[in-house]
Design a protein around this nucleic acid. Structure first.
Lengths: 364, 364
DNA sequence: CTGAAAGCGCTAACAA
DNA sequence: TTGTTAGCGCTTTCAG
């Protein structure tokens, strides 16, 4: 059998994949009957059903998902688009999305962009082709007019094919756009972290992670400044250091601040990875954490609770973020009334061992 | 327009999704012409092409991937099945698969099973329906007869529909089965780690991570024992401690060994997560690492190079593992001759700060 | 309760 | 160079 007709170049024993028609023939019934048995949504005699199921087993038949999709049935797919799945926070969001999708019988397509916005565009269109029920875009972005314009188009063009744009951990667009937003209290977390340091008595707090226009970085900087203002501590430009959200950047930024002899008794790193770099820079300089300098991170990625000292940081419910994104979009699809399209989860400071009062008491 | 006909329950402005027929009408050509312009695989007048492309833009048309798939064109999909995407090693494998898939224009479906073998079965069938070009199963397993049987069926039933089973970081099945295997030198890594400790002078080496029948754990235990044998150090049952591959298990196992006053100067943890637990147990007991006790992990997950002390461990090229899995299976599909179906990547010890000679010289 | 047949949207002969 | 049309595999009226 397998040697009939033009062979495909692939090796293996596979013959033609059996179709519903093969099953029908084998069972001696019509394709409609097979379809009914398999869908189990229509009355069928016990005997007929048995014949069909036997044929299905004999032929090891599985339906063709594409044909089902074309015919209007078919499993829905959620598309997840992120920079890099190996980043802990993203992996957690991904896990949340996948779990909720799986729980509700959906499939999950994952695409990474490595920060390439060109590729993001290609991916969104690809997902439109795939009839993804939703496209979930994850992670902070450079918030420009161009960005807003692009997202608006994404939102509209997905909406026009019955799909939905979901922004997860990204700032919302205009109210009028057909998009779902799941964010977390980014600024609030930074406020809390800074306030924690301030209430310990710190006054010179180095903020590491300035990135002009990067939504996540901006929000954290704003939270930092607001806390300073509330404690009547003047913001000092020299204390606000640039750094992309990676370990090396944190290392360099703190080294530089140290070299410049900027006065500080605490470091607030805009992400845990940056905090790791900061920690190393402090060690190099012989500054002990937390005895000499306190250190706070942001994200609460699993590993930082294993550090020595265990890192004080801001917990973000990333997995819940992903789960919520999936839930919102699936609820809406299922017509569950009152499905919100804008949710903000809260963040909170987790105090661990890397923060303490400053070494010398602050003058009153 | 949008208000004509029976409304779907979903909100939004989406009307009917435009099809190739709409584009044809709008451009005043036939559907075949549109198809040709879009596929760009056939001569078409410049003028005609322009008309078609304009219509495509006006209608914001994208092809229906399911229809393309049914018709035999269509983007292939790789299915990745793993326990939990938040585990660093798995995330890295996933990143490798996704990158290679994307590079070659394929899509990547991710399903997690949380270790549930029942779900694994369901997922494999689902992937068969989806016409996944391959199903990549990731991670160690309980190597039983039942397992072999199940995998054999997976291999055959995927093969029968022209798909391919790929085992990534799992032990191979029989030679005769249609499956591709990408593994790493699991036992060799364990041998190397143990030999490193032995050559430092350690003789009492606690192995933490025994799991009867778990392929990865078994391999590592075998490597450990082989190194001991090669150094003529007798294997002591009390030094081989059970622990699943998680932090808590490592913590408990080492605590217990300490409580039992088992004599050892080094700990070989079967995974880095286990090593983390071991580290904590040692600290609790006031044992310094590496001055009093040396510690080695396995996996080289990113965080362990940030610990204090930085962890000596076995590096596994997880990302490369994923990339290779994707490459092999795609090469084979593209009929690239000589695509192997069995690859083993090598591992190596990364010596960092958690290992040192034992405190007291060993009697000669 | 079962079957025949008309699509779903696209591609690829085959004709013109 | 372009158009017509027969599938791809499944679901779902509509008849029987």
């Amino acid at each position: 059998m397998a040697t009939t007709g033009p062979q495909k170049p692939v090796s293996g024993t596979q013959g033609r994949r059996s179709t519903i028609r093969d099953v029908a023939r084998q069972a001696g019934v019509s394709v409609a009957t097979v379809s009914r048995v398999l869908a189990d949504n229509y009355p069928v005699t016990h005997a007929t059903r048995a014949k069909v199921l036997r044929a299905v087993r004999q032929l090891d038949y599985v339906a063709n998902a594409h044909a089902k999709a074309l015919a209007g049935t078919g499993v829905e797919t959620l598309a997840l688009v992120l920079d890099d799945i190996t980043w802990s926070a993203f992996a957690q969001i991904g896990a949340g999305v996948e779990q909720e999708a799986a729980r509700r019988g959906r499939l999950c397509l994952v695409c990474t962009t490595q920060g390439d916005r060109q590729r993001e565009l290609a991916v969104v269109n690809l997902m439109r082709e795939q009839h993804a029920a939703a496209v979930i875009l994850v992670g902070g972005i450079q918030y420009t007019a161009e960005y807003r314009e692009r997202m608006s188009q994404f939102a509209r063009s997905l909406d026009s094919v019955g799909s939905r744009l979901v922004l997860c951990g990204r700032p919302p667009l205009g109210e009028d756009l057909p998009a779902t937003v799941v964010e977390y209290d980014n600024e609030g977390g930074a406020y809390g972290a800074t306030a924690h340091l301030l209430s310990l008595g710190h006054r010179g707090i180095l903020f590491v992670g300035v990135q002009e226009g990067q939504s996540t970085a901006d929000g954290r900087l704003v939270g930092y400044r607001r806390a300073l203002a509330d404690y009547q501590v003047p913001a000092v430009p020299a204390l606000e250091r640039e750094a992309v959200f990676q370990r090396d950047a944190g290392l360099r930024a703190v080294r530089e601040a140290l070299r410049e002899r900027v006065a500080f008794t605490a470091v607030f790193a805009a992400t845990d990875m940056v905090a790791l770099g900061a920690l190393e820079a402090l060690r190099e300089a012989g500054r002990r954490v937390p005895e000499d300098v306190s250190l706070v991170g942001y994200d609460d990625i699993p590993m930082v609770s294993e550090l020595t000292p265990r890192l004080t940081t801001v917990h973000v419910p990333y997995q819940e973020l992903g789960r919520t994104a999936a839930r919102l979009v699936l609820d809406r699809r299922e017509g569950i009334g009152g499905a919100e399209d804008r949710v903000r989860l809260s963040t909170h400071v987790v105090v661990r061992g890397s923060t303490a009062p400053p070494p010398a008491p602050v003058p009153a």
